[in-house]
Amino acid sequence: MKTGNLIIVIFTATVLVLILFVNSCAPSAEVSGKPGAQLWAENCQRCHNTPPPLVYDDKQWDAVVTHMQIRANITQEEADKIVAFLQESN
């Protein structure tokens, strides 16, 4: 097998194993019990200052958090809780 094809096979196998693994993942009770406010504080500051809830309206927050979910790979559960918190607090 050529080196290039070998890299593709290894790469694809890694992707598949990881996706299978990730799909079977579950949070601990401590993590799943975190409120949106805490997740907002913990995740935003990984890259930048934490934005105040008042800076965007409900629809804008939905778009912004999706943008951030993609950029920082935050989990869906975290994104949902953060959006809910920001929409309640703005």
Partner: peptide, 17 residues
Amino acid sequence: QARGGAPLGNTKINYSF
């Protein structure tokens, strides 16, 4: 690209390919 993140107990893992 394909990407995502998931909780793993008290930790988290994420990937982007």
